[in-house]
Amino acid sequence: MKKLLVIGAAAALSACVAMPSVAPAGQFAPDAEFTVNLSEDWSYWPPAHNPAMEGGYVTQDGFFLNRVHFVTLDDGDSLIRAARGVERPFYSTGSSELEIVELVTNSLTSIGYTTMEADSIRPTTIDGHSGIEFALSGKWENGLNIKGDAAAIPVGDQLHLVVFLAPELHYYDALHSSVGDIIQSMDLPGSPAVG
């Protein structure tokens, strides 16, 4: 009876809250309006487990060592969750490329990163859609140097974002290339027909 109650409770909980799971190599659908292709297995943490930012993320070694966020923003959405004392930047359809870069850097600054800056801001085309890619650098609140990469692709009224963050020491370099492949694999809605 006791065992049944435990199983029942677990089932009830799992029905309410998505649990972390394996994101197997291959086409993967995070909780966003696009899919990506993973060349290896990752651990996927759905939005309910994302403490400060919207969307879910995949990680190889844990939240603080490397993570790749996936999120689709509608007009008026924020990249970060509401918190006391935090003024959130919001996405606005029609934002310029540079405003989108500032949306990302200012959002990260608002959740505890310091001296967060974008570099190597460049135009890109992913799945037939024009957007931007850029590098990120800054510090986490404990002084750890952080690097990252981001891709932002506006399609219609939405902005599709991939944001990679990892400590500069070892972890960023170890996954930088893999994350670049993930970004290039974004399969976006409303993509031009191929072939």
Partner: peptide, 10 residues
């Protein structure tokens, strides 16, 4: 500038 490549394209 960090956005030189983007601005050149623009």
């Amino acid at each position: 500038a960090a956005d030189a490549a983007l601005v050149e394209r623009l």
